[in-house]
């Protein structure tokens, strides 16, 4: 297997980078979408159960099914992969963001309003920073999950390490079948660990010292 890696190391690194790039981009977009949705839910509490239901049902949709649904609309390629990963990535973040934003102590909100902060200021300066650690936890879950989803997205020729796994599966019994599958899987695991580490670091830098555990 070592020879296999050495022979193709440039290609593997390139695909690994593509994989990470897709996931980071999709999770970043998902974070923005999820926070915006959660803000809406916080403002209109009646949407709370709708949001919960969506994230619960969304997570039960099999990845392949979604890819299949998207293909007629967005074709084969990285766009479909991106939308697919982004969809799943949004769900855990949304759930945590709703819990985090709503979990801010009412007395703090009242105190902020009592000092003359407008609704936008309360959201930006009180709710969001206080909910941030909870949202971050959601982003970490989302990132791990997205690594796997992105591998499945390779089925529609999305970029990344997923193609190795599919190649391996396609030529079962062949000379390099195991190598392909192993490199694909291990690559995904290593990347997931690296990105998680990075996220922990970002989390430390962006969480106020006053609420860090």
């Amino acid at each position: 297997m070592w020879d296999f890696i050495v022979e193709r190391h440039q290609q593997i690194l390139y695909d690994g980078f593509q994989h990470a790039y897709l996931v980071v981009l999709a999770v970043a977009a998902a974070t923005v979408i999820a926070i915006l949705l959660a803000m809406l839910v916080t403002k209109v509490p009646r949407l709370d159960s709708v949001a919960n239901m969506l994230s619960a049902i969304g997570l039960t949709i099999p990845g392949f099914a979604l890819v299949g649904l998207l293909m007629p609309a967005t074709g084969i390629g990285s766009t479909t992969a991106f939308i697919c990963v982004c969809f799943y990535a949004t769900l855990p973040i949304l759930r945590n963001a709703v819990v985090g934003l709503q979990g801010v102590e009412p007395v703090l909100i009242e105190s902020a309003r009592g000092m003359g902060m407008g609704e936008a200021a309360v959201m930006a300066r009180v709710r969001l920073p206080l909910a941030w650690p909870v949202i971050l936890a959601g982003i970490r879950v989302s990132l791990q999950m997205s690594m796997g989803i992105a591998a499945i997205a390779a089925y529609v020729l999305g970029p990344g390490l997923g193609s190795y796994i599919f190649s391996g599966l396609a030529q079962i019994g062949g000379k390099n079948a195991l190598n392909y599958a192993l490199v694909g899987t291990l690559g995904v695991v290593v990347l997931a660990l690296l990105l998680d580490l990075l996220l922990v670091l970002v989390g430390r830098l962006t969480t106020s010292k006053g609420i860090r555990v």
Partner: peptide, 10 residues
Amino acid sequence: IQGGSLFPHM
């Protein structure tokens, strides 16, 4: 208000 209700992140 009671306890000062300071913002813990500030």
